[in-house]
Amino acid sequence: MAQMTMIQAITDAMRTELKNDENVLIFGEDVGQNGGVFRATEGLQKEFGEDRVFDTPLAESGIGGLSIGLALQGYRPVPEIQFFGFVYEVMDAISGQMARMRYRTGNTKTSPITVRSPFGGGVHTPELHADSLEGLMIQQPGLKVVIPSTPYEAKGLLISAIRDNDPVIFLEHMKLYRSFREEVPEEEYTVEIGKAAVKREGTDVTLVSYGAMVHSALKAADELEKDGISAEVIDLRTVMPIDYETVLKSVEKTNRVVVVQEAQRQAGVANHVAAEIQERAILHLEAPVLRVAAPDTVYAFTQAEEVWLPNYNDIIEKVNAVINF
């Protein structure tokens, strides 16, 4: 086993699938010779050639449409959108086209496309370079949306995404790209899409989160433990579909929930999670489901970023509120 950062694990997943399946193609802006602006595709063009890993013209909508055409020809495209804030340029291809291919063609055609894209805040990139737009994606039936929080899971989930026969939006939090390393097997393995993971067991409150906020939730749980509060931390890992079975099982045990997301309060995934819990587990709840989220503004400029982004103190505050309700 090797120690890998999340970005290395992502590269390794693509390498694995390029080897496994000759129909896998990697392309996007600067992904070829340059190896991607974040170096996610470093060395892949050299190893697999320009037919399998290539640079596209600077045109996001075109990248989306091209992916659909290739998918219709039996390929498994893995396009990169350089920053997920640029997804607006390719929204029609994603939400209006690839997500609906199976439906429109009466299940005769699919779009086995994995759209990879960096996103997320805390690295001093202003708006459109840091936005959390997963909420837009989960509103489109036909798409799966995956957000890993560790190198090990990033590799296994990306391999699953590439092998999936439906389009998967694979969102890579920029703050996690190089923030830590962990053991990642060099051989192939998968992590199932649609399954959450209990990252820490607890009995007093359930923290439901995904992406970089999982780490804030874990830190909050460490702090809460000092005050004698036992927090269970669930990493959704896939935000469409959401593994409610795991969430509800935890809620039935702890009776209190705080949902934590980096996206603005009006956006993201937390609203869906909170609504689902109150519909399906209201009699298990001792307090309202509370949310930790960013304020409803455009993504913060750098000087406001630290106060704008949710952090572990915000989580602790909400946990105390549900405990003392």
Binding site: E29, D30, Q33, N34, D55, P57, L58
Partner: peptide
């Protein structure tokens, strides 16, 4: 276009 030379663009 960042790293992509003209011949690969048009």
């Amino acid at each position: 276009a960042i790293s992509v030379p003209l011949t690969k663009q048009v």
